[in-house]
Computed example of a mutant assay.
Amino acid sequence: MKLFHCGRCANLLYFENSCCTQCGADLGFAPDAMELLALEPAGDDTGVAITSGQRYRLCANYRDHSVCNWLIPLDDTHAFCVACRLNRTIPDLGIPKNHGLWLRLEKEKRRLVYSLLRIRLPFGPLEEQQGGLAFDFLSDQPARFDERNKVLTGHAHGVITLNIAEADPVERERMRSEMAEPYRTVLGHFRHESGHYFWDRLVAGSAWLAPVRDRFGDDTADYKQGLDRYYQYGPPVDWQNRYISAYATSHAWEDWAETWAHYLHMLDTLETAWQFGLRVNAHGGEHPDTASDPSFDPYQTDDFDALVRHWRPLTLALNSLNRSMGHEHAYPFVLAEPVVEKLRLVHQIVHAC
């Protein structure tokens, strides 16, 4: 994730900021410029970017619900920003706790959308284009709850459904423990389900399908049987030699989605390290690290091997720092060579768009 600076006072800003903590300037993220802009109020929920003079309107979810900090160019007639117009269903705000849960969901969803914009992937609102994307944020209904009515997080026909309980850290920790998932986050869910969406958008019916099947396995195998087998017997004993996660062993589609999500993890984390000027070269090798190569942009580089070279020592540092604080590993993954080659294929497909 990029770092930003206030256009009025040059104070360091972060992606989620809506107000500069130093000078008090109103802020908004402009996806057309990919910048967090300081604004001079211009009336009628509009503002003028201090650095460029361009006028913007606040996203309706920024203005009305304070769950967004994105902007809309003044000549764009949409009420919602490019991230919020992907929403098909939002939580019932008549339930007090749902506003806080929705806020957490929106923060992580915008990180996903930021990454998709940085990679320049094709997507847009489902209601506006064939093959578009939509989000349903739903909750279980206790009054008539049984397993058949439980909201399942998943993707189907361009719609990503997320159970808003995932935004509750207590509930998510319970599910993480029950399902033996060492890494379970809201952002991870968004990235994983976007992998299913982009399978349909970039892989299915394309020239990439054959190489993806060769690397990830037979996607025509019975999906339900694969999941049932995984939940009954667990992953193969040697799964870490071939897969990024245990769940990836259940079916080729899940292997793809887990690998896709991991690729997005890598890009966003590497960009954050690059923006902070973090210097990591644990092996003392000859290759430049993220900070010493000012041209290294993880989102735009064609050099996949450079991504991996930067990634491995960074994850070692992350884990070592966490252990020094008495926490578990921040990065509980092993990048075996078959996994690296799967990530390489994802990289090739992304850069061919």
Score class of each variant (00 low, 15 high):
residue 1 M to D: 00
residue 1 M to A: 15
residue 6 C to I: 03
residue 14 Y to L: 12
residue 17 N to D: 15
residue 20 C to P: 02
residue 21 T to I: 01
residue 24 G to F: 08
residue 25 A to M: 04
residue 27 L to H: 13
residue 28 G to V: 05
residue 30 A to V: 02
residue 30 A to Q: 03
residue 32 D to G: 04
residue 35 E to W: 07
residue 40 E to W: 07
residue 40 E to Q: 14
residue 41 P to K: 14
residue 42 A to C: 10
residue 47 G to H: 02
residue 49 A to V: 04
residue 54 Q to M: 14
residue 54 Q to E: 13
residue 56 Y to M: 00
residue 62 Y to T: 00
residue 62 Y to N: 01
residue 65 H to K: 09
residue 68 C to M: 04
residue 70 W to Y: 12
residue 71 L to I: 05
residue 73 P to H: 04
residue 74 L to D: 05
residue 77 T to M: 07
residue 79 A to N: 11
residue 83 A to M: 03
residue 85 R to A: 00
residue 100 G to I: 04
residue 109 K to V: 02
residue 113 V to L: 09
residue 115 S to Q: 12
residue 118 R to Q: 09
residue 122 P to D: 12
residue 122 P to K: 12
residue 129 Q to S: 05
residue 129 Q to C: 03
residue 131 G to S: 05
residue 133 L to V: 08
residue 134 A to F: 04
residue 136 D to Q: 09
residue 137 F to M: 08
residue 140 D to K: 05
residue 140 D to P: 10
residue 143 A to I: 08
residue 149 N to F: 11
residue 150 K to N: 02
residue 152 L to C: 06
residue 152 L to P: 00
residue 152 L to D: 04
residue 153 T to A: 11
residue 154 G to F: 03
residue 155 H to Q: 13
residue 156 A to N: 11
residue 157 H to E: 09
residue 158 G to Y: 01
residue 158 G to R: 05
residue 173 E to K: 15
residue 176 R to Y: 00
residue 178 E to Q: 13
residue 183 Y to R: 14
residue 184 R to P: 00
residue 186 V to H: 01
residue 189 H to R: 09
residue 190 F to K: 07
residue 191 R to A: 07
residue 197 Y to G: 02
residue 198 F to I: 03
residue 198 F to T: 03
residue 199 W to A: 07
residue 208 W to G: 02
residue 208 W to H: 15
residue 209 L to P: 01
residue 212 V to P: 01
residue 213 R to T: 15
residue 215 R to G: 00
residue 235 P to W: 02
residue 236 P to F: 08
residue 237 V to T: 10
residue 238 D to R: 08
residue 241 N to A: 12
residue 243 Y to M: 06
residue 244 I to M: 11
residue 248 A to F: 02
residue 253 W to K: 07
residue 257 A to C: 10
residue 262 H to I: 01
residue 265 H to T: 14
residue 270 L to T: 05
residue 271 E to A: 11
residue 272 T to V: 01
residue 277 G to D: 06
residue 279 R to I: 08
residue 286 E to H: 05
residue 294 P to A: 09
residue 300 Q to A: 07
residue 302 D to L: 09
residue 304 F to K: 14
residue 305 D to A: 15
residue 306 A to L: 09
residue 308 V to W: 12
residue 309 R to E: 13
residue 314 L to Q: 10
residue 315 T to Y: 05
residue 317 A to R: 08
residue 320 S to W: 04
residue 322 N to E: 11
residue 331 Y to P: 00
residue 332 P to E: 05
residue 334 V to A: 14
residue 339 V to H: 01
residue 339 V to A: 02
residue 346 V to Q: 02
residue 351 H to S: 03
